[in-house]
Design a protein around this nucleic acid. Structure first.
Lengths: 156, 156
DNA sequence: ATCAGTGCAAACGATTTGCACCTCG
DNA sequence: CGAGGTGCAAATCGTTTGCACTGAT
């Protein structure tokens, strides 16, 4: 009846080894959360992460508070990034890997397609912001992905 | 939290008459909410709007639920726009006036400076998005406004 | 007079917190 | 073994809902 002795069933879909960064206590719970983030292809809410962790852990149960505390700990350690979903304001979390900060979001299927190249790389703002020192920016593009566009035009 | 709390009066600073659009029942409560939005210079959360309405109404009390219902009603009528704050995900509301959809947000004083010209207007995305039909976009620029930049450099 | 709009209180969902117990290093 | 992580339950916060009453048109 001890839940503790069961093995965690969260492994990378491509059988890639998950790399657990050093300098942090790797408990069973933290590994499970980290694995979910590792395999994620887009930022996810705490609730979604919580469900995925339980789902992947095959019967294991977790306290919601634990998930939130783990996410805070990860964020403090700089392992993950906390961000607000620009559509509905949901707070989301994402593993810090280099690259893509921007997404094209399909209004139909809600899929988030990462943009590799930042269209703002070469942009400079004009007079109205010359009194403003730019540190960072956030951009999201909305529309319809190829699949959904085809479905919509076929419906007519 | 003693930042620079900018005061917003119920009446237009330039003594402009508030125009209440037709086709909607203008109760005392709705007028109060509309006035706050009319005078706002940036999107505000429901809670902030609620506080401002009570503050400006000099003793009058309002049920929080009323504020939320009014905001929903306004949104359905197309009078206001509901959006997520890109920094912390707070849901905000703003009167629909033409123009400025983008802001430069000061990381220090949290002030939101509207950008009149959309820098995205001249941008075209590259191959990775050619299979994506763009309908809209959202952009925010982060950094330090003139005042805060000066304060920060003076501190050193 | 009618029916949408309101106030109130209770319900709600997501997140946080206090405290006793457990476990990784 | 000890600091720190976890589970649980209760608390909090913003927002929503049901219902009886009120008020704009």
């Amino acid at each position: 009846m001890k839940k503790q002795e069961r093995k965690i069933g969260v492994y990378d879909l491509n059988h890639t080894e998950i790399e657990y960064p050093e300098g942090i206590k790797w408990t069973r719970q933290r590994k499970a959360v980290y694995a979910v983030l590792w395999n994620a292809t887009e930022p996810m809410s705490a609730v979604r992460i919580y469900h995925l962790v339980e789902q992947e852990s095959d019967g294991e149960e977790y306290a919601p508070s634990t998930i939130y505390r783990i996410l805070s700990a990860f964020e403090e350690k700089g392992l993950i990034e906390k961000e607000a979903d620009m559509v509905d304001g949901t707070i989301t979390y994402e593993l810090c890997r280099g690259s893509h900060k921007h997404y094209a979001v399909c209004l139909e299927c809600k899929r988030r397609i990462p943009l590799q190249n930042c269209p703002f790389a070469h942009i400079h703002l004009d007079r109205e912001t010359e009194d403003f020192t730019i540190i960072d920016h956030k951009l999201e593009v909305y529309g319809y992905c190829k699949d959904c566009r085809e479905v919509k035009s076929a419906e007519k």
